[in-house]
Amino acid sequence: MAPRFRFLGKKRGERRTGSRIVGSVGEAIFFGLLFLLGAIALTALVSAEIINPAASIYRPGFGFWLAVTVLSSSVFIGGAGVILTVLRVGVSAERRSAIVQRAADLDLIQDALPSQKDYPAIPREANLVNSPGVNLAYRLPVFKSSAWKLPAMTVLALVATAFAVALLVISFESWFFGEPEWVLMLFAVPYIICSVWTVNYIVRTVWVNSRIGPTCVEISDLPLRPGHEYAIFLSQGGRISLAGLQMLLVCEEESTYSQGTDIRTETKVVYEEPVFERGSILIEPGIPLEMRESLLIPADAMHSFQSNHNSLRWKLVVAGKPESRPKFVRNFPIVVYPNVNGH
């Protein structure tokens, strides 16, 4: 059995031996420190020039601008490194490669086709039916609604940390020279709080993502029609203890509208009912949680709808609540067709 932690690993092309998580954490710490050191040094350099322009050693010249350039590079490389490291968390090399391959294979003409002729304004189901399941007929594709949150939080953390560090360095300098800038110190407090909160969020989210394995949902038949019942199979891998796990059937309306020069989107959940709920679950590595349930589409359900500015979407939502950690949510879009004569 391979040891859980190794100091040395081998690089085999794009693949590496050793723990990916440890590698990612190490990478994030390295780039984070580079960012912090660069931000502190840059702030000290620039603020000293502004606060005490007479100091001969800080007179702007070639050396000064060279130092600014080098330190700015550290801030940029450190920040970009942290963002890229966070973006890569939970995404395998195979998946990245598959995404690139799929993008290269994208048939633009096929994509530009209108909705199905027989069912106008209903989104096509091509991506739903092209993946056969192992236990049931079809495996549903997953859509992570919060995929943007982690990169956005990382950017926010970097910006807040940069501001907090800059304000603290200036404040401490002023305190060191005997003219403390109390207002500036107070001004730094919200940035420090924001920085701590966002870093805490990132650490917790990365922890959850590294513990939760793939979620797979399979369904007995497609397309779905109101009043019909379908078998559902759920498989949840990972290494985590959950306080609760539930699957919801959700319908939401989405409208896009122009307001001045802005384009805004509003989403409203109009139907939400549990398909099943489970309490206290322990998922062990290599032994995924497997459940078979039934899904009933309400008899009076509106069918899925898609037009240029408006849509009505149905989805299955798998939500888990790890003990003392933020919950994870995975969305599986489905398409509901209307009942017509003969169906």
Partner: peptide, 15 residues
């Protein structure tokens, strides 16, 4: 008449 879209009265969308 076609199979869809059916008339609908939602909260922020009506057809």
């Amino acid at each position: 008449l076609p199979n869809s879209p059916l008339s609908y009265t939602g909260e922020i969308l009506k057809i």
